Structure formats: structure tokens, C-alpha cells
Computed example of a mutant assay.
Amino acid sequence: MIEAVMLWNEPNNKSHWDPELDPDWQLFGDMAICAGQAIRAVHPTLPRVLGGISPIDPAFIRKMGERGVLDHVDVIAVHGFPLDWNLWQIHEWPAKIAEIRAVTGLPVWVSEVGVSSFGAEEVQHWGLQRTAELLVGQVPRIQWYSLYDLPRAWEATTRHREAEGSSYYRHFYMGLLREDGTPKPSLEEFARHTPAIGLCQWFHYEDHRLDEAVAWMKRLGVRYLRTGLSWADSFRPNALAWFDRQMEALCDFDVTVTFCFTPEHRGIAPHHTSPPLVKEEFAEFCAAMVRRYALG
């Protein structure tokens, strides 16, 4: 069921790791090494993926190599959204992959790629089509973000929020399905590329969309899924019951599980982007989840 575990999400993006608290990623590197070692101690073969980077930055990967982090992961992951947020064009995808391959011998996965339908659903449809042309067959994993639009009553996981202007609202229109569950034109196009292209879909704590999402993914022929188990959520009431339900529901897919989000009371600062006070606590969370869901 679990094909890989990912250590954090977008560690070089201020929306997910606070650069003021850790400006040179020393604390992140120490935490990632500790977690990588803890996972390997309980599971000798499970692939460990360095948290998908956004922006795609070879200098960050070189820094992780200098820190020794790349000795404790097995895969490098990248995230790209050239039609929405990145300062490069969609046809540059092969060059972006090559930039990372030039600084590491590890396999490179695209664990998030997507196109917002904020401006027009036709743009998303074309972007999906072009992404498939550029990436299928070029990397071992491609995970489209995402199956569902983000409900408008929720908040996007970003530090910038409304200060981003229209860029913030693009976060809410990344799905193949609208918030009400109706398909966009890109859904049918996506089905033409499964299982070569998988999905990245985050499930919030006790997410009401879980069972419907599983039904849609089976209908679409999805095999590869990336999702997350939140360290912060592990302190909620009945957290393990929710984690069990989520992972049981996803048992028919090859899942990459992302471990991330610092509990407010266990961070240097009270925020999910903060480095932890004690890096071993994050490592033990990772090891405990691997024991529970990869080893049974």
C-alpha cells in the first residue's frame, strides 16, 4: 500500500518552512537526516523521498548534499506550476528536470504538477494535455495536483494569503472536480493518461470527501497517489482512528505518504512551518507511521 514516504513538503517554500527561523536550512537538514535514519531503522527498503521542492532549485539540492541529507533519502521530488506561479514556461519542464539531475544521481519524481482553472477551465485542459506530452516517460512518478478544488470556506496553506492577490485564489481551482463534485473538462483528459499520471490529493482531518475521492480515483484508473499524514494532526482527539480510516480507504493504491506540519506546541515558534523544538520527535512520528502502515 505505501510505496514511499516523503520527508516534509516544499521545504524551500516559506509557506511550508519558516526561513526566518532557519535561514540556511541547517535545522531542516538535521531533522530530515534524523527522520531518514529513523525510517530506515524500522523499514530497510521503503523509499524515502526528500520533500518536493518548490521552486525547482538545484542550489537547494546542492545544499542538501553538502549537509549530508542526500545520504539519507532515495528520491528527489520537485513541484512545478508554470501556468500559475512559476517564473518559467511550461515547455521548460524537461530543462527543469535536467537541472536537478545535474546535481544528484538520485531519481527525480514530479510529486506535484497542476494548472488552475481560475482564469478558464479550457486553460487547465490544455495545460494537462501539454504536461502529459512533456513528462510522461521522462520521470518515474508524475502526480497531478489535484482531484478536488479546495472548498472556498477553507484556507489555502500559504503564508501570503490574500496579499498574493489573484495568485492566492488560484489555490482554490486546482482540481479536476469542482467544489460541488462536478467534473471539469480536464477530468476526461486526465483519464487518458492514467496510470502513468497519478494524483496528489491532501485529505484534511476527518475529510468528508475521502470515500467519494476513492470512488473517483478507481473510476479514473489511478494507481499512484500522494497524500499526507500530519504530525500536527496526530495530537487531535482520535487522530489514530482518522489516520487508520484514511489509510484503509487508500489501500488499493500505491501511496506516497508525506510527513509534515509541526504541532504548534512542539515548534520553535507556534506555527506549522516552524522547525521542531526536538527533531527526534518528528523522526519518531515518521517511524511510528511506517511501523503502523507499511509494516502492519
Results as ranks from 00 to 15, higher is better:
residue 3 E to S: 13
residue 6 M to L: 13
residue 6 M to R: 05
residue 8 W to H: 12
residue 10 E to I: 09
residue 11 P to Y: 12
residue 12 N to K: 06
residue 16 H to I: 05
residue 18 D to Y: 05
residue 19 P to Q: 06
residue 20 E to V: 07
residue 21 L to V: 00
residue 27 L to G: 06
residue 32 A to Q: 06
residue 36 G to F: 12
residue 37 Q to W: 06
residue 39 I to Q: 06
residue 40 R to E: 10
residue 42 V to Y: 06
residue 43 H to V: 11
residue 46 L to A: 11
residue 48 R to C: 10
residue 49 V to Q: 02
residue 51 G to R: 10
residue 56 I to R: 03
residue 60 F to P: 00
residue 60 F to I: 02
residue 60 F to H: 01
residue 64 M to E: 01
residue 66 E to R: 12
residue 66 E to L: 14
residue 68 G to C: 14
residue 74 D to L: 11
residue 75 V to W: 07
residue 75 V to M: 12
residue 76 I to A: 05
residue 78 V to P: 00
residue 84 D to S: 06
residue 84 D to T: 02
residue 89 Q to A: 14
residue 89 Q to I: 10
residue 90 I to D: 03
residue 91 H to F: 14
residue 99 E to Y: 02
residue 104 T to V: 09
residue 107 P to C: 13
residue 108 V to S: 04
residue 108 V to N: 03
residue 108 V to K: 02
residue 113 V to I: 15
residue 113 V to R: 03
residue 115 V to D: 00
residue 118 F to K: 00
residue 120 A to L: 09
residue 122 E to W: 11
residue 123 V to C: 01
residue 126 W to S: 06
residue 126 W to G: 00
residue 127 G to L: 08
residue 131 T to V: 04
residue 132 A to I: 08
residue 133 E to F: 07
residue 136 V to L: 11
residue 138 Q to M: 15
residue 138 Q to D: 11
residue 142 I to P: 00
residue 143 Q to W: 10
residue 146 S to E: 11
residue 148 Y to M: 14
residue 152 R to A: 13
residue 153 A to N: 10
residue 153 A to M: 13
residue 154 W to V: 12
residue 155 E to S: 13
residue 156 A to C: 08
residue 157 T to Y: 13
residue 159 R to C: 13
residue 161 R to F: 07
residue 164 E to S: 11
residue 168 Y to L: 08
residue 170 R to H: 01
residue 173 Y to M: 09
residue 173 Y to E: 04
residue 179 E to A: 14
residue 180 D to E: 12
residue 182 T to W: 05
residue 183 P to Q: 07
residue 184 K to N: 05
residue 185 P to A: 07
residue 188 E to N: 11
residue 191 A to S: 13
residue 193 H to S: 05
residue 194 T to K: 03
residue 194 T to D: 01
residue 198 G to T: 06
residue 200 C to Y: 08
residue 201 Q to A: 10
residue 205 Y to V: 04
residue 210 L to S: 07
residue 212 E to L: 13
residue 213 A to I: 07
residue 214 V to N: 03
residue 217 M to A: 02
residue 218 K to M: 15
residue 220 L to R: 02
residue 220 L to Y: 02
residue 221 G to V: 05
residue 222 V to Q: 03
residue 222 V to L: 08
residue 227 T to Y: 10
residue 228 G to E: 15
residue 228 G to H: 14
residue 232 A to Q: 14
residue 241 A to H: 08
residue 242 W to K: 01
residue 244 D to W: 08
residue 244 D to P: 01
residue 247 M to H: 02
residue 247 M to D: 00
residue 252 D to C: 11
residue 254 D to I: 04
residue 255 V to S: 06
residue 259 F to W: 09
residue 260 C to L: 15
residue 263 P to V: 05
residue 263 P to W: 04
residue 264 E to W: 13
residue 264 E to A: 15
residue 267 G to P: 04
residue 269 A to G: 04
residue 270 P to Y: 11
residue 271 H to M: 14
residue 272 H to I: 15
residue 273 T to V: 10
residue 277 L to P: 00
residue 280 E to H: 09
residue 281 E to I: 12
residue 281 E to Y: 13
residue 282 F to L: 14
residue 284 E to S: 14
residue 285 F to P: 00
residue 287 A to Q: 01
residue 295 L to E: 09
